[in-house]
Design a binder for these strands. Structure first.
Lengths: 319, 319
DNA sequence: CCCACTATTGCTCGAAATGAGTATAAGGCC
DNA sequence: GGCCTTATACTCATTTCGAGCAATAGTGGG
């Protein structure tokens, strides 16, 4: 009845560079590696303790240890989700305390080359199926094949149909098409179908030979947390001007578009994007010009703050 | 460093009856009343302990004590937010443990007359400015007046402008109009302006005489949690078919519309609503007829599950 | 049986947003 | 200058959205 609870804070910190959505990772301390993946130094999300004696609020606590570890202040921060399933951290097993993690989403624009073993890695190494900017994505075909095989293995016809429906909705095979927002649902579907490393290592087993496993694994349930963060970010991009937290103060429309594409994992129609952000009042000209475009020089824009008063849902909607 | 943490679970349980959005409340145990409001038996949200020794997941924990207290199973449940600010629970003060609350949103359709002191209360008793179904809302004028007075009291002109902008955005005075989603922002603005009971009682003070205070108070920070829940519900209504968790299996379009109106706090154009849900494939005819309408009998509809495959964001969008 | 009343249902119409395409402008580079 | 590249300006058909008009099918009163 009086098992101890330890509360940790996790941060999913996003940045964009070189047309790539990146997340800050750290090396997992060897002492706390998961069993099934022992020896593999898996990346994990930055995390720190919540100290109930000193931290006045959860967010301040997060900001303070990130400042200490990364040597810089976070800009935009919002709470994501609290993860508390039994067994999500192997340190619980040996009669240890129950581990809760409160995850936060954070956005930053310049990438400080992180100290203390931190590394900026592309999100899409961990969730490769989420990047649909390329014309053809071989990994998606492989995933679909593996998922259909899993659906076919279901016990009764009813469950087969249910699995099929989930696959269609999650991976955009039905009339609705691909929904960039369903990042977490897709990860959980793959996990449930035994198509991620974590699905096996969490149960202390090693995957069957020749089993297809998709994406690089992370330690603990951190890939799930990353998926939660990316889903939230993509969702909110539609109706809040979050992009501007991730880009310099002045930018060309092409730069802005590339950042949005990197985050949404989709290619956008250039002229319509320009109409959307320009006509929608989301950005305004600065009058200055950027010449290093390779073609015609581009005008520099900045975020137009007044849009917050004018539009109900100022974002790059309809991804 | 080793202050104890107690984790509690809160539930914001919504239901709709008599064209009114209701939330399940319980009487606050006298032992743990807040100082400033001592004597007033304030309603609070149902809450229960999270027992790290026995509860495998947070959601199962929530479901189990709700089942015990209310004698029934919850349907739709989703995690809302984790509240952990110092001082949000007066039990922390006497050197007690740090209190964290993980809040959940739950939806249910039939209202069991709750046992154990539970009562279904209209949300809009606590957040009266959120119900804009009536033509003219005196409370809104009073709120605006009080907020402008607060803005005028700001130190420098810069802060005055900032306050003014927040007021305009939150209360729909600018071009963007009213955004039903910003429930929490509005509550926090009022709280910050000292226009709620809790703003004073949290600091152990009593409000100045003749200070306008809006909405019924709840215990602790539960009104903030309620606002968080209502915001989430309204937001999600737009792109997920959550309404159907709150209504009987078969319903007329007018009934459905009244439920949506109760939740969104807005009046909707009848014919367009019908087009939205019918044409959008969200509902389908059952063939049966409801005669007790007072006018022309109405057809009965049901939720059309296939819409999940067909549309990316099946909801009653654009409230 | 006709009529007033009520609420449902079907339809129209213009404004606005959306998706996709064509054309033109302004740099660098050979 | 001619060519390549990218930015920017317009066009056009389609869909969606907001708002109103009209017809329909019941009830209850005289």
């Amino acid at each position: 009845m009086t098992r101890r609870i330890v509360v940790g804070l996790n941060a999913v910190i996003f940045a964009v560079r070189d047309e790539d959505a990146r997340v800050l990772t750290v090396d997992t301390p060897a002492a706390s590696r998961t069993r099934g993946s022992a020896g593999a130094g898996l990346p994990s999300l930055p995390s720190g303790p919540f100290d109930p004696a000193h931290d006045r609020t959860l967010e301040l606590s997060l900001r303070s240890w990130v400042r200490q570890q990364a040597g810089r202040d976070l800009g935009y921060v919002e709470q994501l989700y609290t993860f508390g399933d039994e067994g999500r951290d192997p340190r619980e097993r040996a009669g240890g305390p129950r581990m809760l993690s409160i995850a936060y989403l954070a956005l930053t624009q310049d990438l400080p080359e992180a100290e203390a073993g931190g590394r900026w890695m592309s999100c899409y190494q961990f969730l490769p199926w989420e990047d649909r900017r390329a014309e053809r994505l071989p990994v998606l075909d492989a995933i679909r094949a593996a998922l259909w095989a899993w659906a076919a293995k279901a016990g009764d016809a009813n469950e087969q149909a249910q699995r099929g429906e989930r696959i269609e909705i999650c991976f955009g095979l039905s009339g609705a098409g691909w929904d960039g927002y369903r990042v977490l649902e897709r990860y959980e579907l793959l996990y449930g179908a035994g198509l991620t490393h974590e699905a096996w290592s969490d149960r202390g087993r090693s995957p069957p030979r020749a089993a297809p496993l998709f994406g690089k694994p992370m330690a603990y349930d951190h890939r799930r947390i990353l998926a939660t963060g990316l889903a939230r970010l993509r969702g909110k991009l539609r109706y809040r001007p979050l992009v501007f937290e991730l880009i310099e103060e002045q930018f060309t429309l092409a730069q802005l578009q590339r950042v949005v594409e990197a985050l949404s994992g989709l290619r956008l129609h250039k002229q319509n994007f320009r109409r959307l952000v320009g006509g929608g009042g989301l950005v305004e000209k600065t009058g200055r010009i950027e010449k290093r475009t390779g073609g015609r020089p581009a005008e520099l824009f900045r975020f137009r703050r007044e849009v917050l008063r004018e539009r109900r849902a100022p974002g790059v909607g309809a991804l």
